[in-house]
């Protein structure tokens, strides 16, 4: 592999022998047509002929195929995994596209016009000029309630969604609240119930009326779906049990941010832990701007 260093960061030169962004043009055209259909029917899962990718299912083969098909040479790509730019999945997908497409990559949310993500939406609001691609393991929100594809397809056709409300109601009758904390089902454009991929329900409100286009790709399950910009997305709930998002008692230990999604980091084997922002770019930028959380307060080095 040939690397060259630009501004301190190692950026791979595009590898020869691959078509732009890895996929062949025929596969891209097929996926592109599926994406256009997905945008035309928000929340409806469009079947597509998912290709084998050079990584196992579960690593984002659906998202990668969507990204490969929408990418143009002038794009700047950001890839995050659970909000973080520097975990294995994010790094390998970012390098994959740097190698096969030679596109610019970034960790800064506002510099990217395409953001591929595994299960988080950045804290910084996205703009109309951006597209966010979400990796999806199970695209069918009704799958755990009805295993037969023929039946779930019919349920979507007829808007026969009673079973989903029964499921949420059973949660309440058993536990006193809706216990779904991620992949929380949403109603898109008042018509289709959709799985928002396993994002924490904290991110559900960001999906509604977002200025950016949201594309969802499920490689193993061979489905693509979309939420166009400025589209109504409603998390399912009941009048007496309204939808609510997670909240934390303490701010981010590193940057002091509140009202963001946080990860618990185990510090020792004595039960010690701290909460930090899941969005690594957001957290780093706050720290660069001088914000300090409880774990670093008074530490002026």
């Amino acid at each position: 592999m040939r690397d060259e260093t630009i501004t301190g960061e190692t950026v791979p030169v595009p590898e020869s022998g691959y078509n732009f962004a890895y996929l062949d043009e025929g596969a891209k055209r097929m996926i592109r047509r599926a994406i256009l259909k997905a945008v035309a029917v928000p929340g409806y899962q469009v079947p597509f002929a998912s290709r084998e990718m050079p990584m196992p299912y579960g690593w984002g083969t659906g998202g990668i195929q969507v990204t490969a098909s929408i990418l143009k040479p002038e794009d700047t790509l950001k890839v995050i995994d659970q909000g973080s730019d520097d975990t294995t999945n994010a790094v390998s997908i970012r390098r994959f596209f740097a190698k096969t497409a030679g596109v610019a990559t970034t960790e800064k949310t506002e510099e990217a016009n395409i953001i591929q993500t595994r299960h988080r939406i950045p804290e910084k609001p996205l703009s109309e000029d951006q597209i966010i691609v979400l990796q999806v393991p199970i695209p069918e929100p009704l799958r755990w309630l009805e295993p037969r594809e023929v039946e779930t397809r019919r349920m979507h056709a007829l808007s026969d969604y009673g079973v989903m409300h029964v499921k949420l109601y059973e949660d309440i009758s058993r536990h006193g609240r809706i216990t779904t904390n991620y992949d929380y089902p949403v109603m898109v454009n008042g018509r289709h119930i959709m799985a928002p991929s396993p994002t924490p329900k904290f991110d559900n409100p960001k999906m509604g009326n977002m200025p950016a286009l949201q594309l969802f790709g499920a490689g193993r399950e061979k489905r693509i779906y979309a939420i166009p910009p400025h589209t109504e997305v409603k998390s399912l709930d009941f009048e007496d049990h309204p939808f609510s998002i997670q909240a934390w008692d303490e701010p981010c230990a590193l940057c002091g941010a509140e009202e963001v999604f946080m990860d618990e980091v185990i510090l020792d084997d004595q039960g010690g832990s701290m909460f930090v922002c899941s969005d690594s770019d957001f957290c780093q930028r706050r720290r660069d701007a001088g914000h300090k959380g409880p774990a670093v307060e008074g530490d002026d080095t």
Binding site: R32, K72, L213, A226
Partner: peptide, 13 residues
């Protein structure tokens, strides 16, 4: 083709 597709994607979204 990728640039033209993006024009279509923008138009549809």
């Amino acid at each position: 083709a990728s640039r033209m597709f993006r024009a279509f994607l923008t138009a549809m979204s």
